[in-house]
Design a protein around this nucleic acid. Structure first.
Lengths: 189, 189
DNA sequence: AGCGTCATGTAAAGCGTTACATGATTTT
DNA sequence: AAAATCATGTAACGCTTTACATGACGCT
């Protein structure tokens, strides 16, 4: 079903950034070091090989800017294939696996999807997220109830997980209201 | 300073589980599949090599249970060296890096440290965590304030990060009160 | 003259994922 | 009799980390 079974978070973060605006490997490195996207940590030994592989895959292509300059930078842009990939990726349904293993990728999707697939799809994404989170929290609570004679610290650690998902759930509700309101206002100026 | 620069989450999770009670590779696999520790996902191709490496490092050692049985299981226990490693690891100070890149490891520490280093140290751990989280949230809020003309979705994604840390902060406060109360009560029966 | 930054990479080693392999036992 | 479970692993591949390497430019 899903076109990409697995894309690494680093690859996705890179694609998202050069979707927003084409840039060089060095600029990507800076972005990861200096912005709140920091936890897609990255050394040149991760970024440059990743760029090469994605160029080989035909998702991005580099063009040397200012070839005469003595310090030429290779500016990377998405190819049509790369754009198509991202579009498909952004529109995939959310499954429980995503919540547990790939929350970071869900947040990347949310932060970067609107320009490519529209605000409507972003709202749909949030509605799916709310659905998935609600059901996941319920099942975690069920597990928690069965842990009554486990060590207190273990129960509390699970409690932390539950509260994190609940916090994300509240955030999704709030963000959805905000986006929905803004989208309406854009419709009626 | 820090004795272990980097231990993988899988290695740490395995050590914690066999600290709680010695067990086989297969049992570890089951634990990761069936308990809320699920996100230390794991296939045999991850667990068995990790066990082998940790045996080579001298942290754990295996003893075949029921050697006569046709289905012998190799039960792994911590060595003295492994226990010493874990003890040191549990007592390391919390740094901002841990919050951003290794929250899962912090939760493992919390869940499993008490039997080895005592409730007092666990409370100290929570106090450090509260300290680190407070300061991290402040700095994220400062970043957020500078993002006023960025796309709404980007700002909201950062907001999600902030709220997650705040939720963890609330949890740490609550857990500390609970543990402190319980520890007191154990003192005066 | 030296240090920091721009800019791109390579090499080695370890870790994780997916898939495959084996063989006995228990359940349906 | 077939399927699931117990129990342990290996092989190939890709990704990440750490460290190293190169060279030009800009500031002090």
């Amino acid at each position: 079903m899903s076109i990409d079974q697995n894309i690494s978070s680093l690859r996705l973060a890179i694609l998202c950034l050069i979707l927003k605006a084409p840039r060089s490997g060095y600029q990507l490195k800076k972005d990861f070091e200096e912005t709140p996207m920091g936890h897609f940590s990255s050394s040149p030994g991760a970024i440059y090989p990743a760029l090469k592989r994605m160029e080989d895959d035909g998702w991005i292509s580099g063009r040397v800017d200012n070839p005469d300059s003595l310090r030429p930078a290779k500016i990377l842009s998405l190819t049509d294939k790369g754009i198509a990939f991202l579009k498909n990726y952004f529109l995939e349904p959310i499954v429980e696996r995503d919540l547990v293993y790939r929350m970071d990728q869900l947040m990347l999707r949310f932060a970067f999807m609107s320009p490519l697939v529209g605000r409507e799809s972003t709202c749909a994404f949030l509605r799916q997220l709310i659905e998935a989170l609600s059901s996941h929290v319920s099942s975690l609570r069920a597990v928690s109830r069965e842990l009554e004679n486990d060590p207190l610290e273990g129960v509390l650690a699970l409690q932390h997980g539950i509260e994190s998902y609940e916090s994300t759930l509240r955030w999704a509700h709030d963000s959805l209201s905000l986006l929905a309101k803004q989208t309406q206002m854009q419709g009626k100026p």
